[in-house]
Computed example of a mutant assay.
Amino acid sequence: MKALYTSILVLFFCFFTSCKETKYKPSSKTVDTAAASSAKQDSSSLLDKCINAHGGIQKWTSFTGISYNLEENGKTVYQLTNIKDRRAYLKSNDYEVGFDGKVAWAKPDASKIPGKSPAFYYNLDFYFLGVPFLLKDPGVVATDEGTSVINGKNYKTLKITFGSEIGLSPEDVYYLYLNPETFRLEILTYSVSFFKKENAQINSAKTYSEYKEVQGIMMPTKLENFEWNDGKLGKSTNHIRLFSDIQFLNEIPDKSIFEAPKGSITESIN
């Protein structure tokens, strides 16, 4: 990826795993989050109001890493991500997955990984969980779209687009629907154009709920996918992800955990 920061990469594997999901665009470069935190912020913008409602960009960038347990369909995956450079390590009973800064890897293989690819999967949950903070990455364009009404409820609306040189799917469009009183993210809708560029339509939605304060940052502990048609939230697709034991880390003692172990398969991140 050409930018120093990582922007969103759509992960669309509903055809392969019977559910809809997205993924943010992976990065092989170090992220200078200190620069983001020290940069002059327009606190009056809707994006900054949203970020401040979740704890503020300076609080987010003050940490080195984040870890948590993800439960989905009765299975648990431990995930650790370095916020500064986006290296990652994931472990379940069936596999280990990681990103060492240059290559994504899996052990023993990728057969049980969503998307069948470590590059496809290693940062999926981190990026969903990292919204709205990660929308401060260079090349991300946030536009205040005013008020929207979804299923009879008013929301402040942010439209997210990307510069033409950002990531693998700059055609993607995202909408964040914020509680008008708290400015907290409640609904995220998105296009899915990674596999088919002509399919850049808003056709999926994800709800953020059951927020919990973790070390000064408001974190959702439940993400659920819904059908999205003509600006309306439809039925749940029964794709629910639950996050627990969320912890922000001031340091990561054993950085070798990100390195590809012997016997793993690897995929380069360009």
Rank of each mutant, 00 (worst) to 15 (best):
M1D: 13
M1H: 11
F13P: 11
F15N: 15
T17P: 04
S18M: 13
E21H: 05
K29D: 10
V31G: 09
A34M: 12
A34E: 14
S37M: 10
S37N: 03
A39Q: 13
A39C: 03
K40V: 11
I51M: 04
N52D: 06
N52P: 02
A53R: 10
A53M: 04
Q58R: 14
K59N: 12
K59T: 12
S62W: 09
T64E: 15
I66Q: 05
S67Y: 02
N69G: 03
N69C: 08
E72P: 01
E72K: 14
G74N: 11
T81L: 04
Y89E: 06
L90M: 01
S92H: 03
G98Y: 00
A104C: 10
A106N: 05
A106D: 06
S111R: 11
P114C: 06
G115Q: 07
P118Q: 03
A119K: 13
N123V: 09
L124T: 15
D125E: 09
F128V: 12
P132H: 04
L135Y: 11
V140P: 09
V141R: 14
E145M: 11
T147Y: 02
K153T: 05
Y155V: 02
T157D: 10
T161L: 01
T161G: 03
F162Y: 15
G163K: 15
D172W: 01
L176N: 05
L176Y: 13
L178D: 08
R184E: 15
R184P: 02
I187D: 08
L188V: 09
S193R: 11
F194T: 15
K197I: 09
N199T: 00
A205V: 08
Y208W: 09
S209Y: 04
E210N: 15
I217D: 03
M218T: 13
K222G: 07
K222Q: 11
N225C: 13
L233F: 07
K235C: 00
F243A: 08
F243M: 13
F243W: 10
D245Q: 14
D245L: 05
N250M: 01
D254W: 05
E259Q: 14
A260Q: 03
K262F: 01
E267F: 06
S268C: 05
